[in-house]
Design a protein around this nucleic acid. Structure first.
Lengths: 238, 238
DNA sequence: CGCCGTTTGTAAATCCATGTAACAGGCGCG
DNA sequence: CGCGCCTGTTACATGGATTTACAAACGGCG
């Protein structure tokens, strides 16, 4: 198996060295640079399998770089953030990163995620790797992003309203991740919550009814008190 | 079987001698040094199988050393701390140590942990180390982190409330480690305990009922008086 | 061994986030 | 304009989580 190549982009020289060392030990070929410009040069000079990108960077910031990278190629991206709550922003902005990790992190955790991302990237059938995801499958249900339709396990088409579709889409894109009401609002309506905003709750309720999910014992969309909702299912992307 | 090599890093000469003696008796080849610099030299000079690292050290402190070690290699690390509450910091910061032990400790306890770490390190197939954990198995029970479900040994799905799930998840991530009520609150609710806070006790009670665990004679979640709760079981991560 | 202060277990009361029915716009469409 | 559909708002019901209160268990001590 060929040695996989990682590119680290972080302005903290010490962290760069640590990660280079650690990930190198783990069998990767690692390069590290300090900012966006150097990243561009490195990528232009030789191919990489994954980019580890800090959010806080001098010059152009990590989010912008991520967006640009994503626009230019499909290279997997792992974002590093200084504080946990910035993760909200990333998820909220739907940057297209493959994973996120809050600093300070355990290098092992990073290694685990790097491996996981690469495994996913490699296991994607070649022909699909370049395709857009057009269908999510979970627990027998199917969500088609082209027709915006929901298919029941029995094959019946269930119509979704626009808002319902958006919420389910976001949940399916981030399975097993708790999304706050704010994030869901941001995604689906692009607006802030007003005081005592219950619209997400209502939409979730409507979705559950269509998904046949008993709110007392939800199997699919679970409530996490004080936090939000999760799609608790294994989701396949086709 | 080859003799395994341990490196002790502690500034207390008496303790060093004690441990060298005791662990030597137990069949290990033991070296002991007093600070970080000497540790580097020792590691550079010859390979070790495990480092026992005190937190309080002259010069660079144990936490920093741990981070650096971890970045440079995958050598197993056992941290020693002067006071119990420092363990909170370590666990909280997820420094990447393999285990922790509060001073003063029973040498037998230390020996047991050293053996346990080495057993794990040797038996862990490298490829599994980086896998995503999505299910914990203990005593026939299964906790699926994707569906947030608990599976009984007989295969029945037991529904957990949000708080119950979080507590069991944390316990399963740190099996055989006593977690204080404060830690459990911090992990699961991200909040401090109020005076006379009993919420963890109540939740543990509910969990025990669902796990079929008699509080008088708990087999799974044991109470440690004045300290907290432990998941007393062998936990497999899948 | 029994006494007593402390800690834990837990039923019950309470609090408050969530579920949801019903209503009120809003918008597209004929 | 009226109609149908979608979405958000309101108001109330529900139930999960916490707090309270007390019983039981524990541990130290004479």
């Amino acid at each position: 198996m060929k040695q996989e190549r990682l590119l680290i982009v972080d302005d903290d020289a010490e962290l760069r060295d640590l990660l280079r060392e650690y990930l190198g030990q783990a069998g990767f070929q690692v390069a590290a640079v300090a900012d966006g410009r150097e990243m561009q040069h490195a990528l232009a000079a030789s191919p990489f399998d994954l980019v580890i990108l800090d959010i806080m960077l001098p010059g152009e910031d990590g989010l912008a770089l991520c967006r640009r990278l994503r626009a230019a190629s499909r290279i997997p991206i792992l974002m590093l953030t200084a504080r946990g709550d910035e993760i909200d922003r990333i998820v909220g902005l739907e940057m297209g990163a493959d994973d996120y990790l809050a600093k300070p992190f355990n290098p092992r955790e990073l290694l685990a995620r790097v491996r996981s991302i690469l495994r996913r990237a490699n296991s994607l059938p070649e022909n699909l790797a370049g395709e857009d995801v057009h269908r999510f499958r979970f627990a027998g249900w199917g969500l088609d992003t082209r027709t915006r339709q929901l298919l029941s396990p029995t094959g019946v088409v269930v119509d979704l309203s626009g808002a319902e579709y958006k919420i389910l889409h976001v949940l399916a894109e981030h399975p097993n991740r708790v999304l706050s009401r704010d994030q869901l609002l941001e995604f689906t309506q692009g607006r802030e919550a007003t005081a005592y905003d219950r619209s997400i709750d209502v939409q979730i309720g409507r979705l559950r009814r269509k998904l046949d999910d008993d709110p007392r014992e939800p199997r699919l969309i679970k409530t996490v008190r004080n936090e939000g909702y999760v799609l608790a299912a294994v989701v396949d992307k086709e």
